[in-house]
């Protein structure tokens, strides 16, 4: 590895009812985690069209997080 730390760019699809709520709860509890994810709220992970995932990789995402 180079001395430059890998800082991945992650897009997260979070379900409004569970994972998005959990991410809020993590905030309320002040749990600290790396700031490398950008959140996209959906009403359910069922909304995630595989095309969205491919699109995100095209746009330069290093990883996709799907939480539901």
């Amino acid at each position: 590895m180079s001395d430059q730390q890998f800082n991945p760019s992650i897009l997260g699809f979070l379900c409004n009812w569970c994972c998005y709520a959990a991410a809020d709860a993590a905030g309320v509890s002040r749990f600290q985690y790396p700031p490398s994810m950008r959140t996209l709220r959906v009403m359910c992970t069922g909304r995630i069209d595989p095309a969205f995932v491919l699109r995100a990789f095209v746009e330069g995402a290093d990883g996709i997080f799907s939480g539901g």
């Binding site: 991410a23 993590a26 905030g27 309320v28 002040r30 749990f31 600290q32 985690y33 700031p35 959140t39």
Partner: peptide
Amino acid sequence: NIRDQCSWVHA
């Protein structure tokens, strides 16, 4: 959401 999912968790 720049509080619960940002300022609070990346203090």
